[in-house]
Each structure stands twice: as structure tokens, then as C-alpha cells.
Nucleic acid binder design. Structure first.
Lengths: 244, 244
DNA sequence: CGGGCTCTTGACTCAGCTCAAGATTTGTGG
DNA sequence: CCACAAATCTTGAGCTGAGTCAAGAGCCCG
């Protein structure tokens, strides 16, 4: 662990547009990394956060580049993916508001992070985080918590990729979106599917054609309905759930 | 985070055989969780560790059961897996010596951990770990480091399961074993394949027959050789590597 | 309203699965 | 140390779920 005591000002961040509204600080939201901190510590962290906006398709992190920042998604969705040499792609996670991006243990980013739609991200310099956390171990605990959640989700997805059929994969994905868009424990029955067919394919380890056919199948069986703009409605929740 | 201040003695551990050689403490090994601690802290941790032996096939953790312990593999190999209702299995990770088992953030184990061969594990009560780490944040950092490594490996495996062919999967698996059995940066060219065909299948998201055929294929192409007892020799390293 | 994405659908292929039968290895008891 | 039963592994034959290739339809945005 190298602690670089250097320039903690809001420079040196990945290229994108800085939100002109500087009042919007991550610490203002309860979803950020500082949930476990006191309000004083929170203010301190907030002062060193950078608030940024990315539009759909913009890269936030690049695999192999020096890992300078840790982020928290404030709004929007970020896809985390890896590539094989020949271009085959696998989305290894989706980051929703409250989810952490990057890590403080590695020298380089170990995946690509790309905004799926209009996305707001709060960024901290990893060097600053490391210094600050040394005297505020609650922050380490927060980061550990986020990392552990990501690991659990990865494990679930390994089971999906390795052992589920195309139908089960798509059903699981739709349930995930429903739960994510719902309030508390009540899944949403109508929501926007934020990913394109190709992205869903890259998340589920399938091809775009299989996604399309499987969607058609679900529509024919009246399990889901879809309106223009990828607005999806689950019309037979119990059947969908039983496919997961 | 609930800190249960209770009985820290060596009771309440998962059922198995306690090593009669009580002198063998985890902290004696450099591979344990306490690598970042001072020798004094290490002694303290050591006093609360339980050293246990598991024979091949014995369960160490059971998914869904209360998460009472955090472990470190001292010797042997542990398979971490998840199950679907109908019995389909996916090994989500292999834990080699030095690797951590379990977590301190969740109330229940979220996977099965089973000894692949004769395995020695060092166990700490999660309640004790949480109390101790509050005043020794280096321990949180160690756990974060281990968790982050596991996450990175999971991401690599998601790419493998979602996007690689059977040949590429097996080649990747064999390279992983070679690197793991090698010294430093030099992979071993001859090593024991610790998993049975069915376990390799469950790790790579394939069937036992496909594993067998793919092995035969590698042998026919003189890329590997196999002796009794699953002793494998890589005879054409560059070809194997190019398949990864 | 037109051009470029994105999505769907059809026809065909094929990697990997299933089912089945033997072969080989391993573990155990005498 | 051998015998032999059980477990594990290999191989073949045929099948099938998902991939590939190709064409056309829908839809978004300037």
C-alpha cells in the first residue's frame, strides 16, 4: 500500500465534464461511501470529492490505466466489463446508484467502466482515500462492505453464466431490473430496460439474436409486454419468477 | 455491523477434527491474514485462532448457515461453490494456501466451502475479528485486500464462463494450476491436477464428457501428457498458453 | 423524410450436451 | 500383495440449444 501525499485538489480526474453545480456533493446523498462516518468526517470527505457527469457511452475507467480514483454512482447506470484480445466482451457487473466503482488496492483499473445512460459519479482520489481511511477506519469498513457485496453478486453471476439456460438467464436479468427499480422489497412491474440487446447479450454470455428470440418467446407466452423506448411490463410475474 | 462480545474460546467452530498439534498456529505462517500486523498483534490474533484439518469431501462452510467464522487456507485446496435448486453446481472459486474463506460482513455464509483434498484451515470467530479490527485497522485492510483479490479473480472467471470456448476454458484452468504450483513467476510444468473431472466441469461450466474429450484432444496434440494419479505434464507450453 | 442504428426473424450449422457402454483407476478387505 | 467392487474416466453416436449468416423491419434523430 503506497500512500501518496500529494495534491488533493480536484484535479487529475478522468476526462469528462465537471458538473457546474458544485453544491451537489456525494456526501449529501445517503448512498455514498461515507454512510458510516460522522457528519464531521462526511464534510471532510465531501470537500475532497469531485462530482462528474458522463453521457451514454463515455468511458469512466479504462482497464490497465493507473487507478487514480474511486467512484460512487449517484445516478444512472454504469457497465463494468472485460475484453478478450479478439474483442469478445463480458459485462461483469452493472453499477447502480450507490454502487462503488474501482478499488483502492490495485495500481491499475482492472476493468472498463462505461456510462450506459446519462450518469453522475462522485470521485475521490485513491491516494486521498488511503490517507483519510488510516485515521477513519469506518471508511475502510464501508469500502470492505461494498467490495464484499460486489463479490457476492459476482458469485451469483458465475452460477448464472456457468449453469443457467438462455431463458433462465434473461428471466434472472429482468427480475434484477425489477428489483432494482422497485421500492424496498416490492419489485417494479414496469420499468425501462436500460441496456441495448447487444449489452444484455454481453451481460448474459449470449448473442444478440438469442436475446431477441428469448424476448419474443416471453412476449408470445404473455409473460412480458414491451412498449416503444424499451419500456417493459411484467404481465406474469409468477411465471417469470419461476424461471429464475 | 453487530459486535457480539462473547465467548472467544476455541468453541463453536464448524464440525471437524481439531489438529492435535496445537503449536501450529496460523500466525506462524506468513500467508495468513495478519501479514500486515505487528508481531505483538499477531500473537494476540494467534491466541484466538483455531487450527483445523479437513479430509477430502468434508464441508467447511454451508451456504445459508450462520457465518460464525473467517478462515485462511494453510495447506490443501478448498472449492467454493453454489448450487441451483435442481442440483446444478458451479464452483465459483478455488481457495489455495493463503486464501481467505468466508467474510465478516454477512450474517450467513453465502457459499459452500469444501475440502478438495487433505486441507488445513485456520479459523477465527467473526465476532472476535470485528472487535479486534476496530482497534487494529490493518486487519481490515488485510481483509479488504483478500476480498478485492477474490473479486478480481471472479471477474476473470466471469469472462471465461461467458465468453470462452471449452478448449480455452481448459487451457486457462491448466495454466492457473501451473502458475499456482510454480515458484514465483515460473509456472510448474508438472503438477497434480487436484480436481476430479466432474469438479473441473463444475468449475468451467461444462460437462464431464466435454472435459474428458478436451483433455484427450490436448493429449493427441501432444500439448500435455498425463500419468497415473492425475499427474499432468505440459509438453508444449507455448501452444497451451496461446489457447488461453 | 431519409440514413443509420437497432432489433427481429428465418434457415442452417455446430459446439457442447445427453445417453450409453466400456475401460481404467482407486480403495478395501482378506 | 492380490482380488474385486465401486468410483471415475473415456469414447461413441446422436441430439439440441445456442451460434452464425443473412435479409428485412422498425425506430430514432437530424
Amino acid at each position: 500500500m503506497i500512500h501518496i501525499t500529494a495534491n488533493y485538489s480536484a484535479t487529475n480526474y478522468p476526462a469528462a465534464v465537471i458538473n457546474p453545480d458544485k453544491r451537489s456533493k456525494c456526501a449529501d446523498k445517503n448512498i455514498s461511501l461515507c454512510a458510516r462516518l460522522t457528519s464531521h468526517q462526511r464534510d471532510e470527505m465531501s470537500a475532497f470529492s469531485t462530482f462528474k457527469k458522463y453521457s451514454a457511452g463515455q468511458l469512466i475507467f479504462t482497464e490497465g490505466k493507473p487507478s487514480t480514483h474511486l467512484g460512487t454512482v449517484i445516478s444512472g447506470i454504469v457497465k463494468i466489463y472485460k475484453l478478450l484480445d479478439d474483442g469478445r466482451q463480458q459485462i461483469v457487473a452493472l453499477a447502480f446508484p450507490g454502487d462503488m466503482l474501482g478499488n483502492i488496492m490495485d495500481a491499475e483499473y482492472n476493468y472498463f467502466a462505461e456510462a450506459v445512460d446519462e450518469t453522475q459519479v462522485c470521485l475521490y482520489q485513491t491516494s486521498w482515500i488511503n490517507s483519510f481511511a488510516e485515521n477513519n477506519s469506518a471508511l475502510y469498513l464501508s469500502i470492505l462492505d461494498k467490495t464484499n457485496r460486489q463479490l457476492n453478486k459476482s458469485h451469483d453471476w458465475l452460477l448464472l453464466l456457468g449453469r443457467k439456460t438462455a431463458k433462465e438467464k434473461l428471466a434472472t436479468f429482468l427480475m434484477l431490473l425489477a428489483v432494482n427499480d422497485g421500492d424496498d422489497a416490492v419489485p417494479a412491474l414496469t420499468f425501462k430496460v436500460p441496456l441495448k440487446r447487444q449489452e444484455i447479450a454481453d451481460f448474459l454470455g449470449l448473442t444478440i439474436e438469442t436475446i431477441s428470440r428469448t424476448f419474443s418467446n416471453l412476449k408470445n407466452k404473455q409473460v412480458v409486454r414491451e412498449q416503444a423506448g424499451h419500456i417493459l411490463t411484467i404481465t406474469d410475474y409468477s411465471t417469470l419468477k419461476s424461471m429464475v
